[in-house]
Deep mutational scan, measured.
Amino acid sequence: TLFEALYDYEARTEDDLSFHKGEKFQILNSSEGDWWEVRSLTTGETGYIPSPYLA
C-alpha cells in the first residue's frame, strides 16, 4: 500500500526519516502504533515516520 505525505517532517532521532509534503511511501511495518516503518519511493531510504502525517 502506498501513502503520500501531507506535511514536511524533520527527523528527530536516527531511526526517524525526514520527508517533504507530497513524497510517497511504501509501508513496511505499521504495527508500532502511530510510528510506521516506511520506504521512501523518492529517496529509497527507510525509517520511521508519524502515521498522522500520511494519507
Rank of each mutant, 00 (worst) to 15 (best):
T1D: 13
L2K: 03
L2A: 05
L2R: 04
L2Q: 06
F3N: 09
E4F: 12
E4C: 13
E4S: 04
A5D: 10
A5L: 06
L6G: 06
L6N: 06
L6Y: 07
Y7D: 08
Y7A: 07
D8T: 04
D8W: 03
D8F: 03
Y9E: 01
E10T: 12
A11Y: 02
A11C: 06
A11L: 12
A11V: 12
R12A: 11
R12D: 08
R12G: 09
T13C: 15
T13V: 08
E14C: 10
E14I: 07
D15C: 15
D15F: 15
D16I: 12
D16L: 12
D16H: 15
L17Q: 02
L17M: 13
S18E: 04
S18V: 06
F19E: 07
F19T: 03
H20M: 11
H20F: 12
H20S: 11
H20A: 11
K21D: 03
K21E: 04
K21I: 12
K21N: 03
E23V: 02
K24S: 04
K24Y: 12
K24N: 03
F25D: 00
F25H: 00
F25L: 06
Q26N: 03
Q26G: 02
Q26V: 14
Q26T: 09
I27V: 14
I27K: 04
N29W: 06
S30W: 12
S30L: 07
S30N: 12
S31C: 12
S31E: 10
E32K: 13
E32Y: 13
G33F: 08
G33E: 13
G33T: 11
G33W: 10
G33L: 09
D34S: 08
D34N: 06
D34A: 08
W35S: 05
W35R: 14
W35T: 11
E37C: 08
E37D: 01
V38H: 00
V38W: 07
V38T: 00
R39I: 12
R39E: 07
R39T: 08
S40C: 05
S40F: 03
L41N: 01
L41V: 09
T42A: 13
T43C: 06
T43I: 01
G44I: 12
G44F: 05
G44L: 04
E45G: 06
E45V: 10
E45A: 12
E45M: 13
E45R: 13
E45C: 11
E45N: 10
T46V: 14
G47L: 06
Y48D: 00
Y48T: 05
I49L: 03
I49Y: 01
I49T: 02
I49H: 00
I49P: 00
S51V: 10
S51E: 02
S51G: 11
P52G: 15
P52M: 15
P52V: 15
Y53T: 08
Y53G: 06
Y53D: 08
L54E: 04
L54P: 06
A55M: 11
A55L: 10
A55S: 06
